[in-house]
Structures are given as C-alpha cells and as structure tokens.
C-alpha cells in the first residue's frame, strides 16, 4: 500500500514538473515582451540584451494613451466585437439548429456551401467584398465593420455539432404541447446549448478583436478605427517605439484573456460535447 502511494506521489511530481516546464517555455516570450515593454526605445536592441531592464519605464503604459486616440479605438473595438459576437450568436445558433434538427430540401448543400467558404483565403475575397460594401454605402461606418462579419462558418459548424447532441424528443414533446417553433428554439433548446455558446462567444470575440485587414480597408477616419489599427499606427517607416508598442499590445490582449478566464469551464464543456460527435 505504501509503495503505491509513493508511486502516485512520484507520478504527480513528474506531472507537475512537466507542466511547470511547459509553462516556463510558454511564459518565456511573455516575460520577454513584458521586459521589453518597460524599456526605453534604444535599450531594447542593446547587445547583450538585458533580461530585466536597468531603468524601468512605466510611462510606456501611459504615454500611448495620452498621445493617441487609443481610448476611442478601444471603445470602437469593444462595440464592434460585441455587436459581431451578438450577431454571430443569433445567426450561427439558428443555422446550426436548422442544419442539425430539421430536414428539408437543399439543407446539406447549403451546409456544405457554408463549410466551403472556410477554404478560401481571405485576402482575395477582400476586394469584391469591399466593392459590395461600398455599393451598400457602408464604408467608414459601424455597419461596414460589423455586418459582413455577422456570421461565421466555423460558428455554424460548431453549433450544428452541438445541436446534434440534443435529443429530438425534447422538441417533439414541446410541439405536442403546442409550442411554436420560435418558442421551442428560444425557450426549450437554447438553454440546453449554453456551454457551446461560450465556446462560440470566445472564438468569435477573439477573432474579431484581433481583426486587422478588413477594418483597415473599410475605415479611413481616425474616429472609426479599431484597436489593432490604432496600434499599427505606432509602427512607422523610420522609427518605432517598441517599448510603447509592446505595452499597448499587451494591454490589448487583456479583454479576451479575461473573457476566457470567466468562461473557460463552460468553453471546455461546450467543446467537449460538440467535438465528439463528428
């Protein structure tokens, strides 16, 4: 008995050792990024490099917000990413529900068509998409930033997988009780797929929060720019303040990280149930 306990102790120790080792490897670039974010511009490229800055420049975290409209950029990003996420939750759950739980002509073709859009490199469709958005009069507007991103093939796929785990009987029972389809969807089925929703929310929010190329094309006015565009303005032809760039970049990842922290258990649960039925 004692031997077994010891064995377990050793095993756990090994697990911890591996995890800590892995964590160190993962954390190393962050350590370097944080160290860089606290350096003066010219100290960053000093050879040999300083692991911990000789002089610490906390102002790198403050100055950018004073000299550039990053606050406004941040608000724009929050607004756009939230709106996109809400739209996706609506369109992807509805479509996923439809593809998983209904039978009608053309269903599988539509689903395949949706999946096929995943396989086209985004850069080339940017131009025709831009032409379309221009024709709709959405350049330099929130509509132009939000609506084209309002649904996602990956989201539809994810929700379809998850809805397949919901037993048909629940819907049938509700129908027999005389519930309308919309009510079944909103009040009977939706509560069952909450874990998958957190997976969807994180995925969509994250992608949109970091979205760069599309906002760059659609927006030409400073007051409409999102955070990634605001950060890109730090880079310049002949000189960049890397310390400030790092500082702002690190701050910009916080919202998504916090979202993950809050939703991670549901996120994993959501993935767990949807991923297994392929």
């Amino acid at each position: 008995m004692k031997r077994i306990e010891m064995k377990f102790g050793l095993k756990n120790l090994l697990v911890y050792a591996l995890l800590v080792g892995g964590a160190l490897v993962v954390a190393f670039p962050f350590f370097y990024a944080i160290s860089t974010s606290l350096k003066a511009s010219y100290d960053i490229f000093k050879i040999p490099m300083e692991w911990i800055p000789r002089e610490i420049h906390w102002e790198n975290y403050v100055v950018p917000f004073q000299t550039r409209p990053l606050g406004r950029n941040f608000l724009n990003s929050v607004l756009v990413s939230t709106a996109v996420t809400v739209l996706n939750v609506i369109t992807c759950t509805m479509a996923g529900y439809s593809f998983a739980k209904f039978r009608y002509y053309g269903r599988d073709m539509m689903f395949l068509g949706v999946l096929a859009t995943l396989m086209v490199p985004i850069q080339v469709i940017l131009v025709p998409l831009f032409v379309l958005v221009k024709a709709l009069g959405w350049l330099n507007s929130y509509a132009g930033l939000i609506i084209p991103a309002g649904t996602s093939a990956f989201g539809v796929f994810l929700m379809r997988q998850y809805f397949q785990t919901v037993p048909l009987e629940i819907m049938e029972a509700a129908r027999i009780d005389g519930c309308g389809e919309l009510r079944i969807f909103a009040q009977v089925v939706m509560p069952l797929v909450r874990p998958a929703l957190s997976a969807l929310v994180i995925f969509i929010f994250m992608n949109n929060w970091n979205s760069f190329l599309w906002p760059l094309l659609v927006v030409s006015r400073d007051e409409m720019m999102t955070l990634p565009l605001g950060i890109a303005a730090f880079e310049s032809t002949y000189s960049t303040n890397f310390g400030q760039l790092m500082a702002v970049s690190l701050i910009s990842t916080l919202p998504v990280l916090i979202a993950f922290l809050l939703l991670q258990r549901q996120f994993i649960q959501g993935m767990a149930l949807s991923g297994l039925k392929s």
Binding site: F130, V131, K134, L216, S220, R221, A232, E235
Partner: peptide, 22 residues
C-alpha cells in the same frame, strides 16, 4: 480629411480604394 495608413498595408488600402473610386 487626413488619414495615416500603416506602412505595410498602404498599397493594399490604396489599390482597393482606387479600384472602386473611393
């Protein structure tokens, strides 16, 4: 109305916009 565009994407934005007259 002035806009400064990130260097790396300057031509991407220019070309896309010019192609639609915007």
């Amino acid at each position: 109305e002035y806009t400064a565009i990130p260097n790396n994407q300057f031509f991407t934005k220019m070309l896309t916009s010019m192609s639609t007259g915007t």
